[in-house]
Write a protein that binds this DNA or RNA. Sequence first.
DNA 1: CGCGTCCTTGACACATATCAAGCCAAGTGG
DNA 2: CCACTTGGCTTGATATGTGTCAAGGACGCG
Lengths: 230, 230
Amino acid sequence: MSDCNTCVVRNRAICASLTADEIQLLGQLGRKQRVAPGQSLIWEGDESLVVANVIDGVFKLTVSNVQGKEQIVGIVFPSDFIGRPFGEHSPYSVTALTEGEVCMFTRQSFDNFARQHPELEHKLLHRTLDELDNARKWMQLLGQMNAEQKLANFLLVMSNRLAGQSCAIADPSEGYTLPFGRQQIADLLGLTIETVSRQFTKMRGKGIIELPNRRDICIRDRAALEILAA
Amino acid sequence: MSDCNTCVVRNRAICASLTADEIQLLGQLGRKQRVAPGQSLIWEGDESLVVANVIDGVFKLTVSNVQGKEQIVGIVFPSDFIGRPFGEHSPYSVTALTEGEVCMFTRQSFDNFARQHPELEHKLLHRTLDELDNARKWMQLLGQMNAEQKLANFLLVMSNRLAGQSCAIADPSEGYTLPFGRQQIADLLGLTIETVSRQFTKMRGKGIIELPNRRDICIRDRAALEILAA
DNA sequence: CGCGTCCTTGACACATATCAAGCCAAGTGG
DNA sequence: CCACTTGGCTTGATATGTGTCAAGGACGCG
């Protein structure tokens, strides 16, 4: 059982739709669990046994083809929901990219609870519709952008989700630490690691971004980046 | 007002979750409307004013970049749901590819009705989760497949949705009529029309498919097609 | 029959993948 | 404290798939 009253995502996760009484019931079904980078919670194709709210950390959703090439089909941040409710199987894997913590439920207990609490289902529907919009936006990126546009859009999207974190050099509001290595950026954008690296180098050469180390990004000229992204 | 009792998608659309009384209420909010090929019901970026159930016909969901290049981000068949409930704006356009008929609601009246009928929202949640899974599967296609794999997958997916229709030559169970022209196939797969055409020619040359005319597809060797798709 | 639209085919260019080598930073053990 | 290893990243040379540009062909329609 989880103590929902002290939960840092209490008012941002789907739990926000519940009353104090209801959330206590739900809390009894869930349990908090810490996860390490690289740890998977759900595997592509496996039976869908658990769902969870993300309390802390960043996760990736991935599908792989037979040759093992990986496509990242979603990124999950704190207060987001993980897993496939109302379905026998999960069509994607869920893996932690950073240290993190989740509030986990068995799928069945969550499904049952949700069916009895329309407000919760409504909130989940809202989120799922938003996720679908995001996925379709990303299809546009994968389908019709070149490498430069893909990377520029990626940097801008990440900036929106991760803004305000430390940046080793410039204006802190324009710097953040990526939760990805180069290979994962490639898997997300449908490129190779070499192409990603070259595009980074090119943007740094133009003075648009700064790369103080392997994981940090500083946006020096956001306007220029937005032009590249269009 | 629509006569739901005679509606051909009564038991397949989200309406199937409603009782006779409820569906009568919903029917009073909706109105049936015929649409012509090329006619748009919703425009990308516009206020989300209407939603609808598809009674007949095939529709595309599209997003366009500033240069006007179009990416098809979804295809909608009879009994599917159209539009963006619970959102101010629609992030994509909805356009008919064939003659068709829809059962239309103002978004606001539908939203209100849905909030008062959890069973309907539950059904809608189910569908949205399935759509999200489809969209992510398609991201894999856009992100990591080559032209041949993309087209092979496309033909197999279409075969599942359109199977059993007429084919001018071979085994009717393996033939169907595409609701797309070449340009739209290209927009769907993130390719150019020329590449699509060349891949069609190549597959025909190998005896895997037959192309009796511009719109018909006959699958002559499904096993081979499945190998190409992997 | 002639016109327009859509499709196919060809020649060529270019972006990105592939293959291969080297670099850098961090960690480990002597 | 320094050599050594390791894993991730960058850079270079080359190959190739797909885009681009251009012409020609097929089909449907007035």
